[in-house]
């Protein structure tokens, strides 16, 4: 999943911070010997089912016979008209559904098939929906070999649409998936983010092992919430690092550049950040660094308030000082 956008918006009072989290991903699926011809058929305004050993015709088609477990190879064309075997009504369509006005969902047994296909019916009004109603396919004007090549069904007993072969067999289908969430932080994380908006780095100490976590979290070694607040310095030591040489989508800096784990003074767990201000091949373990903050006028409840870390020029920390934090 690709994270498109997270930005934490601060509130004056205590409730935990939350923010929109919108993710999207195009699922690309190969189709194989059954769904490939089925999707190719839809592109060509033709519906193909297949026949299992018991003689039943399945639409959508099955890849394997549930009784014999054999591949189902006997493809059968069925009619673009059918009968509603069950239905419901949607007053407020959700994002991504076949219609953006009130519509019916239905299980539809196409003429020539023995099983039912799930799809939308553009009936206009709930009162027009009923079990046993006759419907026909409304084809999408642009068809690519996808279940959405059926735009929806509409009331009607027959169809004048003619199938037409339109190119190479379809072997891949792509389905964009977009989901919207509200991500909610813990109270401790919220305190950390609010302190960041004031230019402070806040940690919390585990009451059992006494380690200081930045950002605060339930101690993963002891399973107890950390409690005592500890302000840590914005200076620290590079424990380990990598040189980014590979370009990728959404990259903000030109490679090569360095992403490092930085153990802030007073903390027991390092944070990841950028090291800039010197050539990538000069960054080393043990190097002392300091935070470079953005203009305070732009600070929000975000780790992005720190633009990057820069070398301080202090002598390197000895390995023993950070070997427990790698």
């Amino acid at each position: 999943m690709r994270r498109l956008r997270t930005c934490f918006t601060g509130r004056v009072t205590a409730p935990p911070l939350s923010a929109p989290l919108n993710i999207s991903f195009d699922y690309t699926r190969s189709l194989g010997p059954v769904l490939g011809p089925f999707m190719t058929g839809l592109r060509d305004r033709r519906v193909l089912g297949n026949r299992t050993a018991d003689g039943r015709v399945h639409v959508p088609p099955l890849e394997y016979d549930p009784a014999t477990h054999a591949p189902v190879t006997d493809l059968v064309e069925v009619r673009p008209t059918g009968t509603v075997t069950s239905w419901t009504w949607t007053d407020r369509p959700l994002d991504g559904q076949p219609l953006d006005r009130p519509f019916g969902w239905a299980l539809i047994r196409l003429d020539g098939a023995d099983t039912a296909l799930l799809h939308a019916v553009d009936a206009g009004a709930r009162e027009r929906m009923h079990t046993g109603m006759r419907v026909r396919i409304r084809w999408a004007s642009e068809r690519t070999g996808h279940i959405r090549d059926i735009a929806c069904f509409e009331p009607g007993a027959d169809s004048a649409d003619r199938a037409e072969a339109a190119g190479e067999p379809v072997t891949i289908m792509t389905t964009p998936i977009r989901l919207s969430y509200t991500h909610t932080t813990s109270e401790d994380e919220s305190r950390y983010l609010r302190a960041l908006a004031e230019g402070r780095l806040l940690g919390q100490r585990c009451p059992v092992c006494r380690k200081v976590y930045v950002p605060p979290r339930v101690c993963p070694a002891d399973g107890v919430p950390t409690e005592e607040e500890v302000t840590v310095r914005d200076h620290g030591t590079v424990t380990t690092f990598c040189v980014v040489n590979v370009p990728f989508a959404g990259q903000r800096l030109d490679p090569p550049y360095v992403v490092a784990q930085i153990l802030l003074d007073g903390a027991d767990i390092p944070i990841p950040h950028l090291i800039l201000g010197l050539p990538a091949d000069r960054v080393r373990m043990g190097m002392r660094v300091a935070a470079v903050w953005r203009d305070p006028a732009s600070w929000t409840t975000s780790p992005e308030n720190i633009e990057h870390f820069r070398p301080t020029g202090e002598p390197d920390s000895p390995y023993e000082s950070y070997q427990e934090h790698l």
Partner: peptide, 20 residues
Amino acid sequence: PYVAAPLWPDSVSVAALQAR
């Protein structure tokens, strides 16, 4: 993910088809 999910049939509607 091939023939049903790309239509985004929500879980309440799916249950309603069963209830019907």
